[in-house]
């Protein structure tokens, strides 16, 4: 049984976001690139399952759609413990293109379980995983906060408004995972980093796909009005401001 983890290459979450080219491109000066945090949790969970012989999980592959410059992030996934990687040599501008390319990869090399993070921390679209499942005509389960596999049978916990559901689903399936799927992201050890150097990154050429959306421009957030400070000796004034000025209580 094989798991595929789809990973996105994103600016570190503490990046000070700035734009260039008339606000149409991220200014990547000084940006540290990392595995998208939710994808990193998905990878961690996949590796935990593989570590447990009772799960039946034999291999964990990562897939990425991006140019050669994202290989350091793929190497990091290999150092954390993925067995091998597939990179589609394509620079996407939007989710529909990413899902199209990933679907091609999986049509050529099937997997039993496909894991995607709930969103990427850059575009926040929450769309790639479900789009991919639709391209594959496979079931998808969203908001997954728990995944267990025993003898190849998966039990999934998904979040619903105000609770959780335990579900089972036919394989192959796409699970779109979020917080809870793994406690802490696994960190690469020195041994893993050494091993990653010799692991294979298979590069595949993309299929043609036009985007459905087009970015017009980015807009930095509007600066908020300066904070109005209330004297710590008189917190009552805060309640008055919230009631009479902001009118929110």
């Amino acid at each position: 049984m094989k798991i595929l983890v789809c990973i996105s290459n994103v600016p570190d979450t503490t990046t000070k976001v700035k734009f260039t080219d008339n606000n149409t491109k991220l200014d990547s000066t000084g940006v540290q690139w990392v595995i998208n945090p939710w994808d990193e949790l998905a990878l961690t969970r996949a590796l935990e399952l593989k570590d447990n012989p009772a799960s039946g999980v034999k291999g964990v592959t990562v897939a990425h759609v991006g140019p050669a410059s994202s290989e350091p992030t793929i190497r990091k996934a290999l150092a954390i413990g993925a067995d091998d990687a597939i990179r589609v040599n394509f620079e996407p501008t939007e989710a529909y293109q990413v899902a199209t390319q990933l679907a091609e990869v999986i049509k050529n090399e099937p997997f039993d379980i496909i894991l995607c993070g709930i969103e990427s921390s850059d575009y926040n679209g929450s769309t790639v995983g479900s789009m991919l499942a639709e391209f594959l005509n496979a079931p998808s389960v969203s908001a997954v906060s728990g995944l267990n596999v025993e003898n190849g049978e998966a039990t999934i916990t998904r979040d619903i408004d105000g609770g959780k559901e335990t579900v089972s689903v036919q394989k192959p399936f796409v699970a779109i995972v979020q917080k809870g799927i793994a406690k802490e992201p696994r960190i690469a050890a020195m041994r893993g980093i050494m091993q990653a150097r010799t692991k294979q990154i298979k590069v595949v050429e993309p299929v043609g796909v036009s985007p459905l959306t087009e970015l017009i421009e980015f807009e930095p957030p509007k600066p908020r009005a300066k904070c109005i400070f209330v004297d710590a000796e008189n917190p009552k004034q805060l309640i008055e401001l919230l009631q009479n000025e902001a009118k929110v209580i």
Partner: peptide
Amino acid sequence: VYSGNAFAHVK
């Protein structure tokens, strides 16, 4: 976009 650190106009 960028987890609230920016907004995008998308066609």
